[in-house]
Simulated assay, not measured.
Amino acid sequence: MRAPNGLRFDANLKWLFTELPFEERFEAAAAAGFTAVEYADPYPYPAGRLRRRLTDAGLRQVLINAPMGKPGSPERAGVACLPGRADRFRTDLERGLDYATELECDFLHVLGGIRPTDVSHDRAFATYVTNLVWAVEQTRGTGVCLVIEAQNSRDVPGFLLDTQARAASAVEAVGEPNRLGLLLDLYHVQVQEGDLVSTLRKHLPRVRHLQIADPPDRTEPGSGEVSWPRVFDTLLDASYPGWIGCEYRPANGTVNGLSWLTEQAGTARTPAEGTR
């Protein structure tokens, strides 16, 4: 879905259209005007089956996550930072790449993982970077770019990458900017760090994908505390070319809540207006 000013938004099917069973959300997203989708966990479904859903609905797959452990387990955010789990990490990453390739997906998100309390941050971070270096090599020739994300410690206690600076330092340590970049979630930035526009400006050169939701309740833009026209103006000023994932919890139904696209994104100036 493209806003009047040119910004592109995709539907996160884990969060949007939850009024419907998962496989019916593809057609619903297309009917609402979206041309692309993302979701964290494709693995309960055969990749070919999801590919058909995308094709039938005329949709593009933007993002999936690499496999993670069960909710509530130590592996619930993946094993990438866990010492001694390289074999499991590699198996999961290869499975994620197989799905991403089959779905013709732009980005595969490699989560930082939950740091065990008996493992130092330095050791967990070094483990993560080592795994990322290996993972980047596996993407060569696939057309898939890896992305990593900082998550706030209120919602995800113990997450390795709890600030944008830490996520950016991992990208810099790997040193493969064409194959590894930031997934910057503006909800997590605002909850953890605040100073949203300045943080966005600082890290945009490393950003490959964005996600949005409005704190404090993680609902649609315009329902919370963020000045979204200012945020979208910042993206326009920087000529941000990528997708923006709608990863929010609709307050009053998915389709009814999409009015924010005109009320928030639609009030941001166009690039031409910014040069007048």
Rank of each mutant, 00 (worst) to 15 (best):
Glu94Ile: 05
Ala167Ser: 15
Leu93Tyr: 02
Leu97Ser: 01
Phe125Ser: 01
Leu184His: 13
Gly141Ser: 03
Phe107Gln: 07
Glu102Cys: 10
Val171Gly: 00
Arg208Pro: 12
Ile114Arg: 09
Leu182Gly: 14
Ala150Lys: 04
Glu176Lys: 13
Asp155Glu: 09
Leu132His: 07
Asn131Cys: 07
Arg154Pro: 00
Phe159Pro: 00
Pro157Gly: 07
Val110Trp: 00
Ala173Arg: 10
Tyr187Ser: 11
Thr199Trp: 06
Leu200Arg: 12
Thr163Ile: 13
Leu108Val: 05
Ala135Glu: 00
Ser153Met: 09
Gly113Trp: 00
Glu172Gly: 07
His203Ser: 15
Asp162Asn: 07
His203Met: 13
Ala124Asp: 10
Gly113His: 03
Thr142Asp: 02
Val171Phe: 01
Glu193Ala: 14
Leu103Asp: 04
Asn131Asp: 02
Gln138Cys: 13
Leu103Lys: 02
Ala168Tyr: 15
Ile148His: 02
Cys145Thr: 15
Tyr99Gln: 02
Ala168Thr: 06
Arg88Ser: 06
Arg154Asp: 04
Glu193Phe: 09
Arg179Lys: 10
Gln151Thr: 12
Leu200Asp: 05
Gly158His: 02
Asp92Glu: 10
Leu146Cys: 10
Arg90Leu: 00
Val174Glu: 08
His203Pro: 09
Asp162Met: 11
Asp162Trp: 09
Arg85Met: 01
Gly175Thr: 04
Val197Lys: 14
Tyr128Glu: 01
Val147Gly: 01
Leu186Asn: 11
Ser198Cys: 14
Val147Glu: 00
Glu137Asn: 11
Ser153Asn: 12
Thr117Arg: 15
Ala124Thr: 05
Leu204Gly: 13
Gly96Ile: 02
Asp98Arg: 08
Asp106Lys: 10
Ile114Cys: 08
Val129Met: 06
Val156Pro: 07
Asp92Tyr: 02
Thr139Val: 09
His188Tyr: 11
Gly194Ser: 13
Val207Gln: 12
Thr101Phe: 01
Ser120Met: 12
Thr163Asp: 09
Gln138Pro: 03
Leu182Ile: 12
Gln138Leu: 14
Arg201Gly: 09
Ala124Lys: 04
Arg208Trp: 10
Val133Lys: 14
Cys145Ser: 13
Glu94Met: 06
Thr127Ser: 08
Asn131Phe: 02
Gly175Asp: 03
Glu137Ile: 08
Ser153Ile: 07
Gly141Met: 07
Ile148Gly: 00
Val189Arg: 04
Glu149Thr: 10
Gly84Met: 06
Glu102Ser: 11
Leu82Gln: 14
Thr130Trp: 00
Asp118Met: 03
Arg115Cys: 03
Asp118Glu: 09
Thr139Tyr: 04
Glu102Ala: 13
Arg88Ile: 03
